[in-house]
Amino acid sequence: MENVARKPGTVTPAGAPKRGPLSFWERIYVVEAARGVWITTVHFCRNMWRHTLHLVGLAKDKQAAVTVQYPEELRYVPPRSRTRHRIVRREDGSPRCVGCMMCETICPARCIYIVAEEDPDPNIEKRPKRFDIDLGMCVFCGFCVEACPEDAIRMDTQMVDLAAYSRNGMILTLDQLLAGEPAAPREATNALGERVHG
């Protein structure tokens, strides 16, 4: 496999150690393969040993797996994350949205469906009759929040666990959107619900 060998002076990725031509033992590959297998085996044995220790309650501070066991363990969600939408209410509880359809227009995923109607108050004039967001299609780009001239739609509920058993279940209606409340950023917790640094 001499064609794999890097010629001296060829461009290497930034930070990568410069590699010279391969030696004979590298080129016959068997030794290198054996070394690779050795590394893998060491890794396996180390992790397996730690897993075993954890089972009997030892060496809890040494990780055996880096994965987060999701429903039991939760990751930290940064405060500025774009999370599930909500529609801001006026003081009287009615939606602040005036149905201008800016969000619907800007939405690259076309997941917002608005039908507007006449508001009895001529100073408000227009209000949404239907305001659905299909979370199954939403790409969480936040354009709707940016586009809103009334600051009526926000993505600060910190809700990221969005799932449903059907496609229709992924559609949020106006009532559900109005029920959303802003929330504090979610902390990382372990399987016992204890706060952890993560």
């Binding site: 149905g99 201008c100 800016m102 408000i124 001239p149």
Partner: peptide, 9 residues
């Protein structure tokens, strides 16, 4: 500043 509710927009 009615543009959001104005049909002419």
């Amino acid at each position: 500043l009615d543009c959001p509710v104005c049909d002419q927009a």
